[in-house]
Structures are given as structure tokens and as C-alpha cells.
Simulated assay, not measured.
Amino acid sequence: MPATLPTPIEFRLPEGWLPAGPDSPDAEHAAFVAVHPRPDAGFTATIAIDGERLPDGATPAHLADESVERLRELDVSVDVTDRREVGTAEAPALTQRLAFSAVVDGALRDLVQSQVYLFVSDVEDARKKAVIRLILTASVAQHDTALRDFQEFVRTVRPDTGAGV
């Protein structure tokens, strides 16, 4: 069952990317998943969105570490190849890139996951904080091309105030 986000957002998908159906295995724990139009050797790159209320005392690095541990719980060896805290004090963010191998459809695949953590205030109560996580998962061969689309996508993500654009 798809998850829900702790605060509404709006975004625009890169050209060609398609929303995955709610019954897609990729959508099981995400609020939204989009798939790349061209698989690479049987693996389809995805962009996923999930989020949660910000736990008390949680830091961006703590949340990023939790993502790494969740992958490791799947018996996956994960390397954090890059991590940066970005943004401002008012709008902090964190990016990280993970490299791992996983069995997908019976074949071992080398994958890369680029994650962006956006820390936002609730649109109805600014005292409540949330984190929105944007995740690109792609094969090593397809990552750089898909990353350009992902960066385009990230630039479009913003709180949905209901005012329309």
C-alpha cells in the first residue's frame, strides 16, 4: 500500500518519466513512484518520494544513516559514496549517493541510489517539521543520464499550499 506524505508537495516529472501504478512493487513504501521510459538491461530506473514527520532531535545525517541501515537490512552491501548537507538554516537539505548490488529479477545488478532530503515546515502549522525524501535508483550504466532528469525533477519540488501555480 502506498505511503502518504506528512505535508503536501507539488512537482513536475521530467519528460518521458511515467507514474508507476499503486500496485507496483516499487510503490509499496513510497507515496509516489515514477519509472524511466527505457530500462537498462532489464532494470528500470525509478524516482520515488516518501517522507515522515521529523522525529525530535533527528539530524539530516541521522536520517541519511537510517536509509543506509534499511538497505543493509535487506542483506545488501552499501557504500556511501557521497554525502553533503546543503540548503540554508531555514531550509536545510542533505544529499547522498549510495552504491550497492542487489538481486533484481534473479540477476545481480550494480545500482546507484541518489537521495535528497528536504526539511520542510508543515503548511498548516510551521512548528511541525517534516522530511521529504526524493530517491533516484538506477543501474550504474544509466545513473548519470537519469541523474540529469532527477536534478530537473528536484528543482520542481515545493510545498503545495493549495494556491495553484
Rank of each mutant, 00 (worst) to 15 (best):
M1L: 10
T4S: 15
T7G: 05
P8Q: 11
I9L: 06
R12G: 12
P14V: 00
W17K: 07
L18S: 08
A20V: 10
P37A: 01
R38G: 09
A41T: 11
G42Q: 10
F43G: 00
T44E: 12
I49T: 00
G51C: 05
G57H: 07
A58C: 10
A61K: 11
H62E: 02
A64H: 05
D65T: 15
S67M: 07
E69I: 11
E69Y: 14
R70Y: 02
E73P: 04
L74T: 14
L74G: 14
V76I: 07
V80E: 09
D82R: 13
D82V: 13
R84C: 01
G87P: 05
G87S: 08
A89E: 09
L94K: 07
F100K: 04
S101V: 09
S101Q: 14
A102E: 15
A102R: 15
R109K: 15
S114A: 13
L118Q: 03
S121G: 15
D122I: 02
V123H: 05
E124D: 14
E124H: 12
D125P: 06
R127Q: 10
A130F: 05
V131M: 02
R133P: 12
I135W: 01
L136K: 15
L136I: 06
T137V: 00
T137F: 00
V140E: 15
A146I: 06
F150V: 00
F150E: 01
Q151Y: 00
Q151C: 02
F153N: 04
P159W: 06
T161M: 06
G162W: 05
V165Q: 12
